[in-house]
């Protein structure tokens, strides 16, 4: 399986650990990355609100640099990059004029892009749907049993609607973490926005959002929150201290990438998985995992029906 790889700017900065561990995971799973030569920033969330045409052209340049015949699909590990690549491709296909104008801009650099030529994928989607949970299971050398991992998707990954998972209640990462053996509670805030770049505009607004998310995870006794987006990771991790001082809380929840915890399950040395790059320490989580007793095969006793209680509706099978 060969894909084009678009690391995104943060890969060279705060999400270095995500980029590195993604490459490690990919190698283990037999995914080959062809990094786009001379890629540039996707414009993140801001540029599109400043000036649309150059914003689209900026993203389209990355698509144009891909040899679509060799790698007709490109993986972005970052949700913002992923959505920008996907959006640009879709809008260029939909709007003739945009397509023409973007291609005029690209022509200045001797490039061109035909919409539809390259399909954009999120790395989580590729791992779970192309490689598959079964193949992931085969690569596992140890279980993550004993750890309570709260999956947090953020707002970009599953949206808009026709995406690889349900926009409001995605399950992809839940299933992945369960496959790895972790306890995965049902986190009701998993698609609520992390605030994005709101931290730069209004500390109050962003801290309120972050506190909400952290409180939700805390109530579920999270050993860590697992993310698939550098923006989410940065906000929840770097501002956790600020949340604590603003709200007199004491959250110590490490924010880790799904690629990092996959590495643990694949038997990779925790040192090489760069947990220490997180601001909130992952030490407690790792220790808990190392000292966790192997999962006992005790059969869970069927809960007895409470005489008074009304029956619960069954969950919808997805």
């Amino acid at each position: 399986m060969k894909y084009a790889w678009y690391p995104g700017c943060s890969a060279e900065g705060n999400s270095f650990a995500y980029d590195e561990t993604s490459r490690m995971i990919a190698e283990a799973l037999g995914i080959e990355f062809q990094e786009i030569d001379d890629w540039n920033c996707c414009g993140a969330t801001e540029y599109f609100s400043v000036n649309q045409l150059p914003a689209y052209a900026l993203v389209a340049r990355n698509l144009a640099l891909i040899n679509a015949e060799e790698t007709p699909q490109v993986i972005a590990p970052c949700s913002a990059c992923y959505i920008n690549l996907k959006k640009t491709d879709e809008k260029m296909a939909k709007y003739e004029q945009l397509n023409t104008e973007v291609n005029v801009a690209l022509a200045a650099g001797n490039l061109s892009y035909e919409p539809g030529a390259v399909k954009s994928r999120h790395f989580l989607d590729v791992v779970c749907n192309d490689v598959g949970y079964e193949a992931v299971k085969e690569k596992m050398t140890q279980s993550l049993a004993g750890l309570t991992l709260v999956p947090y998707y953020g707002c970009y990954m599953g949206r808009p609607e026709d995406n690889f998972d349900h926009p409001e209640r995605p399950q992809t990462m839940d299933t992945l973490l369960k496959t790895l053996g972790a306890d995965v509670p049902d986190y009701s805030l998993k698609t609520i926005c992390c605030g994005g770049h709101m931290t730069q505009l209004s500390a109050e607004a962003s801290l309120r959002i972050l506190r909400h998310l952290l409180e939700g995870a805390n109530q579920l006794n999270a050993d860590a929150m697992v993310v698939g987006c550098p923006m989410c990771q940065l906000n929840l991790d770097a501002y956790q201290k600020d949340v604590n001082s603003a709200y007199k809380t004491n959250y110590q929840i490490p924010i880790v990438y799904f690629s990092q915890v996959m590495g643990l399950a694949f038997g990779m040395d925790p040192e090489t998985l760069m947990f220490e790059r997180g601001i909130v320490s992952s030490k407690a989580m790792l220790e808990k995992w190392l000292t966790a007793e192997p999962a006992s095969k005790k059969r869970r006793r069927r809960e007895k029906r409470d005489k008074n209680a009304l029956p619960m509706p069954k969950q919808l099978e997805s």
């Binding site: 349900h166 409001e168 209640r169 049902d186 009701s188 619960m312 509706p313 069954k314 969950q315 919808l316």
Partner: peptide
Amino acid sequence: FDARRIPQYGYGRYPNVFT
């Protein structure tokens, strides 16, 4: 209408959400 189709309302997950 099957309320479980709108997951953000939590029917089937939160006991005290009723149809």
